[in-house]
Amino acid sequence: MNKIIKSVIFMAGVLASVSAFSADYPTKNIRLIVPFGAGGGTDSVARAIANSAKDILGTSISVMNRTGGSGAVGMSYGAQQRGDGYTLTVVTREIASLPQMGLMQNDVNDFKLIRMINLDPAVVLVNKDSPFNNINDLITEAKAHPGEVKFASTAAPNFYLMALEKNQGIKLNAIPYNGSSEAIPSVLGGHTAVTMVTPGEAISQLRSGQLKALGVMSKKRISYIPNVPTLIEQGVNVTTGTWRGIAAPKSTPDKIIKTLGKAFDQAMASDNFKHFMTKGAMTIHNMNAVEFTQFVKDDTKSLSTLIQ
């Protein structure tokens, strides 16, 4: 009950601030399309950023989950909406990979990118009792027994693994699981030898020592697991990971993109959002529209070398 009263008061406040805010945008609710299901990682980041941005924009932002085809359905839906600034879409790395695989009709050119929100590297993880202690142990074993080391893959195809395999000329036995929540127990139970997920997805197992990290696939070490060396430090020049950002349909006026960009800058800098991301061991990576667009182009290219 308290909640409802609070939200009514809040709504009243929002309405008041909207009328005080005389600019022509935004004047009504904004919808944020999330191409993944309620409760997942992308969904929770989206809800957190929406929660922080709504006060800054002075309008409520309702999250709309539109799942399907590993994100293809939601992102295509978002690309096809009216470019009036009232429908935004969370874009993920899948927007770079799926169109190249012929699994998505729209691609990044159907969007105007607004901001990158976060960028997480992948971490190579094994069971605490595993004989592997660093990435080279794993590579040596994989070279000695090609296709035998069992890898719990969070997606099919798995671009984290493919990046390592291509760079080192090795082959693992990739067994596809339905995301990290299935892959991690498989490694914990000793059914598979190794997996790659983002730090946030495995933070509780890393902290409790149930899983051992062989290396993080970023250029620099990350603050949440400072003792874990990068693959580059261990002489393996591979970086990979995943990212999320916010985009609007192509036809959205640049003025609105700018307004939204500034609002998301503030939202990402807000204590609430920073707190959420830190606790979840996720890395905020604010990239402006120009950088983000270039970044996606580069990532699309690097993925295409893996896909071909």
Binding site: A38, I184, P185, S204, R207, S208, F276, K279, G280, A281
Partner: peptide, 30 residues
């Protein structure tokens, strides 16, 4: 699995996991 291993057993406990982590807690044996 949520409380002892830190892995969600179903979609609901995945959200509970998120809620615990946001609170600064580490689900799992710790």
């Amino acid at each position: 699995p949520l409380l002892t291993l830190g892995v969600p057993g179903d979609a609901v406990s995945a959200v509970l996991l998120g809620a615990l982590i946001v609170q600064g807690l580490t689900p799992g044996p710790l």
